[in-house]
């Protein structure tokens, strides 16, 4: 799942969750995370996950995309669970519910909340320069995504080396990514020059306003 796709749903989503202010959604997510951290009751955690699933079902959000993305932590959780000796089903379900509740709540938040609103709230917790970097990183994803798309398109059209020749495949991938790195750094420098010309003074005032 690409971040650019998530951003599209957060910006243009029509669900009621999109209309709820970030000031309400963020404390709700905080409550879910606090429950995940402090509660070890299988029923509490099970009900919490069920409530989140119901929210996904009843609100018009991209259901399958959210559920698919929220299952990602399970892959690595399996490695962790295999490493526990004498593991019981209860423990396994407690850990799984914890992982799924936390990931689903956060994914629901990013799918229904504009990033400027999230970063605006983070601006109260993190130092200013860090929020600037976070904001610019997010913006840069969209600028660089286009370059990467062009590069991968070119890679395909020019006949990318097949996996039967792994060294050539890795070398070509490395060269393309190397070009991408150089291009990205040049883009970063141009971005800063453009920002300076437009009066950037080491902070984004509209993040504070939100």
């Amino acid at each position: 799942m690409k971040i650019t796709d998530i951003d599209y749903y957060a910006e243009y989503g029509k669900s009621r969750l999109n209309k709820i202010p970030a000031g309400i959604k963020l404390p709700a997510v905080f409550l879910v995370i606090a429950t995940v951290i402090f509660s070890s009751n299988i029923f509490v955690l099970g009900v919490l996950y069920l409530v989140l699933l119901l929210a996904i079902t009843f609100f018009s959000v991209p259901k399958l995309k959210i559920i698919k993305l929220s299952l990602y932590p399970l892959i690595f959780l399996i490695l962790f669970l295999i490493s526990i000796q004498n593991l019981t089903l209860t423990t396994a379900f407690i850990v799984i519910f914890k992982a799924l509740s936390a990931s689903t709540s956060l994914i629901l938040l990013v799918f229904t909340t504009n990033y400027i609103k999230i970063f605006g709230i983070l601006n109260r917790i993190l130092p200013g320069f860090m929020v600037n970097i976070l904001f610019l990183t997010y913006r840069s994803i969209f600028i660089l995504a286009k370059t990467l798309e062009n590069l991968t398109g070119m890679f395909k059209f020019r006949g990318k080396p097949c996996l039967k020749n792994p060294v050539l495949f890795l070398m070509t991938t490395g060269n393309i990514l190397g070009f991408f790195v150089i291009k990205s750094i040049q883009t970063g420098e141009n971005l800063y020059d453009a920002m300076k010309l437009r009066g950037y003074s080491d902070n984004f005032s509209y993040l504070k306003e939100k």
Partner: peptide, 12 residues
């Protein structure tokens, strides 16, 4: 700051 941001985006 701009270069760090681009590096972050590149990693993502």
């Amino acid at each position: 700051i701009a270069i760090i941001s681009v590096l972050g985006a590149l990693m993502l």
